[in-house]
């Protein structure tokens, strides 16, 4: 007998996949939060950099057969360099300008990177071809890759928390598409704001809350409704607690 059968197995699976999605989102919003927290600049194109990292992984690992660790390190380093370039070329001239100009300029970079990816890499999904097993726990299916991302997020958070490095690449995500940036971008952004800018723990909590809403909402209705609830939750939270989830009331 399945010991978990007393609970609704689908709900449990949705909850669990929410936790794992939360891990991915937390990892994504971690770096963004860092940019926010340290230089107070709104990088709307942040998710596109991650997307480039993913493409880098795909080409190095699947097409050029580089060892996976070499590919991962090379991607993290080159995305880091891209970030520096972006800062010097686009952000630095605008540091004194209105925040909204920085947002729009990085928005321009977003359009640029996204369409560059469409032009260069095409619009088909690329697959890393990493055959990671799907775990079966008590009748529930758990994607190993998300588990990895979850672990990476935890480790990444601890590392950043200890002020060691910035973690950019969500290497454990196996499929990549030019619109990955667009689908994750706004959400990571909202998560950072929801969890108070520059507050890593807040961002982490917000990522999980968001992911649970998307995942559980998507279970009962369509996935789209999950997003609707998540966005609506964001709007309402902005009204109730504009300083973010974890902010102390002043």
């Amino acid at each position: 007998m399945n010991p978990l059968a007393v609970f609704d197995i689908f709900l449990l699976e949705a909850l669990l996949s929410g936790v794992l999605l939360g891990g991915v989102l937390a990892l994504l919003s971690l770096g963004l939060n860092l940019v926010f927290g340290v230089i107070d600049v709104v990088w709307i194109c942040y998710a596109e950099l991650i997307m480039l990292g993913m493409y880098g992984m795909y080409y190095l690992y699947t097409v050029y057969h580089a060892p996976i660790w070499v590919a991962a390190v090379a991607c993290i380093v080159s995305v880091g360099i891209l970030g520096v370039l972006l800062h010097v070329l686009v952000i630095a001239p605008l540091l004194g300008a209105a925040p909204i100009n920085q947002l729009l300029a990085t928005g321009g970079v977003l359009f640029f990177l996204q369409s560059a990816a469409t032009v260069l890499f095409g619009i088909e999904f690329k697959n890393l071809g990493l055959r990671l097993p799907v775990l079966k726990v008590g009748g529930m299916f758990v994607s190993y890759s998300r588990l990895l991302a979850f672990a990476a997020a935890l480790i990444g958070m601890v590392l950043v928390y200890l002020w060691l490095t910035r973690t950019y690449t969500g290497t454990a995500i196996r499929a990549i598409h030019p619109f990955v940036g667009l689908s994750f971008g706004p959400i990571t952004f909202l998560i950072c704001v929801l969890g108070s800018l520059g507050n890593f723990v807040g961002g982490f909590v917000a990522a999980f809350v968001f992911a649970e809403i998307i995942s559980v909402g998507g279970l009962y209705l369509d996935l789209e409704w999950g997003y609707v609830f998540a966005f609506a939750f964001f709007i309402v939270m902005m009204f109730i607690r504009p300083q973010g989830l974890m902010a102390r009331r002043s």
Binding site: L104, A105, F111, F112, S115, A116, T118, P178
Partner: peptide
Amino acid sequence: AVGWDNLVYGVLLVLFIVFLP
């Protein structure tokens, strides 16, 4: 041309905000 128009938009936008706000 899929993607090229946005590519040019993106570059234009950044240039405009930096040089011609």
